[in-house]
């Protein structure tokens, strides 16, 4: 599941918070990124350490 950092102060979710795909249903995510409202968070990969 992709996550996004909220950059702007006029988006529905608070600035600085992180939102996921399912919270953005019905919205145009690409336009929000291009408009400077959201920034895609890098996905974390699991590493197995023994």
């Amino acid at each position: 599941m992709a996550k996004y950092l909220v950059l702007s102060d006029n988006f529905r979710e608070p600035q600085g918070s992180t939102v996921s795909d399912d919270q953005l249903e019905g919205l145009n995510i690409e336009a929000l990124i291009l408009g400077g409202h959201l920034k895609a968070e890098p996905s974390k990969t699991k590493t197995d350490k023994e």
Partner: peptide, 18 residues
């Protein structure tokens, strides 16, 4: 300015939104 009308609207043309 950042995150205002132009930044928000320009990428939406030709797409659907809410």
């Amino acid at each position: 300015a950042a995150s205002k009308t132009e930044a928000t609207m320009y990428p939406l043309v030709g797409t659907t939104t809410t």
